[in-house]
Write a protein that binds this DNA or RNA. Structure first.
Length: 426
DNA sequence: TCTGGGGTCCTAGGACCC
DNA sequence: TCTGGGGTCCTAGGACCC
């Protein structure tokens, strides 16, 4: 029996999440901003129809959006994360083999079913998700992941398909001939431009390229993409989640920060966030990288960006150790008189907790891991920052902007949606 | 004034080894 | 004049993804 791939992609996911608990947004143009209310990262169909481009800096289009009466939201990750896990849980109930690819996409394995077309089955999945969760999805079906992605793209763009397209039953070459090379999964802006200069502008052109040429100019990844377009499956369904190889935390500041003290607070806060993720993954880090940067768009001052990697004597998940090593490194990178825009931390060289190798010359500090576990448990119960390192500061004035955030409807008791009912005659 | 954040993979080149 | 060969590991940088 042929195993086929389906890609389930939530339409305009963040904008759709905002609509779930705010039905007055239905039919209206909605956009969602990135962290720090910086750029537009999600748009409803109505917003797309107005010509609002993905990634536009908010400050450049704020007036225009107001004039068009576009509804604008800061990103609300607790909400999107929760809705995403509901969609994924439902998918796993409907199909056994599911790979969660991103917050709004999943790949599935489909089996050919006697008596029903794959498109019919896709339609059934789509309707079930819409009925149970309220999120519209597009579904693409193909013999490889890359072809399923192509099919998903077509399903989304062509209304008459009602959100589902099965490329296996279609004239693949004629579809690929109309499909821009830059829209292929794995071909980004740079490669698309490089290909275009060589006269390769459609997916069909790429599919028909010579293997040796592809290997040389686009590396193994490009060759693999072309193979997948030919129907040769090179990418498998990855249905057990792999542990991360690095954990990062960084954010732009709400204003340009000049003082070392504020940078220290911010960095300690980001370290704290990354360390919590690390411990959740039951892992230890061997290395930590810190970096800070001034505004790269600023034309009046030279851009400064610096980073420093610290390696530990033994892998750890202890926030105190991370902060103790990071602060001196930050102090060395700090240049007075500059206006810093962003700082961040990356924990890497991760190993599972169970792989911990004791240091011959040192005794493991078991009290530290108990302390971390206690802090995580308190913060888990009473909320983030209930207990924290003093180094992370308290007021955090440098924090990023989030001026238009909707409530955490599904993850905070205090922010549950209110339902108002009125009865005639009462 | 104001331009996101968090990941992965691949390659080239240098350092180093025998 | 002519300065090895083969291998590993690490890092930086570039490209991609959502």
């Amino acid at each position: 029996m042929d195993r086929l791939f389906a890609l389930v992609d939530c339409n305009n996911f963040y904008a759709s999440c905002e609509r779930l608990f705010n039905p007055k947004l239905v039919g209206k143009p909605v956009v969602v901003l990135s962290n720090n209310d910086g750029c537009i990262i999600a748009r409803s169909n109505e917003a797309k129809a107005l010509g609002i481009a993905m990634g536009t800096p908010y400050f450049k289009c704020e007036k225009q959006l107001k004039a068009w009466r576009v509804e604008v939201f800061s990103s609300n990750y607790p909400l999107y994360g929760d809705i995403s896990s509901r969609v994924m849980t439902l998918l796993k109930q409907l199909e056994p083999d599911v790979e969660i690819y991103s917050i709004d996409e999943a790949f599935l394995h489909l089996n050919k079913i006697a008596g029903a077309t794959l498109a019919d089955y896709g339609m059934h999945l789509r309707k079930t998700i819409l009925r149970c969760i309220g999120i519209p999805v597009s579904i693409g079906i193909g013999s490889t992941k890359t072809l399923a992605k192509v099919a998903g793209h077509i399903a989304k763009k062509n209304e008459e398909l009602q959100g589902v397209f099965d490329i296996t039953g279609a004239d693949v070459d004629s579809i690929l001939g109309d499909f821009a090379v830059g829209d292929i999964w794995g071909i980004g802006r740079c490669l698309a431009e490089r290909l275009r200069l060589r006269g390769i502008s459609t997916a069909l052109d790429l599919k028909n390229c010579d293997d040796a040429w592809l290997r040389k100019h686009l590396s193994v990844a490009g060759l693999r993409t072309a193979m997948e377009l030919r129907g040769v499956s090179c990418l498998t369904l990855d249905d057990c989640p792999v542990s991360r190889k690095s954990i990062a935390s960084s954010k732009s500041f709400g204003y340009q920060v000049e003082s070392l003290e504020e940078l220290k607070e911010a960095l300690a806060t980001y370290i704290d966030q990354a360390a919590v993720k690390l411990r959740k993954q039951r892992a230890l880090a061997n290395c930590l990288e810190i970096y800070l940067t001034t505004n790269r768009f600023c034309k009046t001052a030279a851009h400064y960006s610096a980073r420093k990697i610290v390696t530990f004597a033994e892998p750890t998940a202890n926030t105190t150790v991370f902060i103790r090593h990071a602060i001196p490194a930050l102090t060395r990178l700090f240049r007075p008189g500059l206006r810093y825009q962003k700082a961040g931390v990356v924990l890497f060289g991760l190993v599972p907790e169970s792989f911990y190798q004791p240091n011959l010359f040192r005794q493991r500090d078991h009290r530290a891991s108990s302390l971390m576990a206690a802090i995580d448990s308190i913060n888990g119960k009473w909320g983030r920052y209930t207990i924290q390192h003093a180094a992370a500061g308290f007021d955090k004035p440098w924090k990023h902007r989030q001026e238009k955030k909707s409530p955490a409807y599904t993850t905070r008791w205090k922010e549950l949606p209110l339902v108002k009912a009125s009865w005639p005659g009462l």
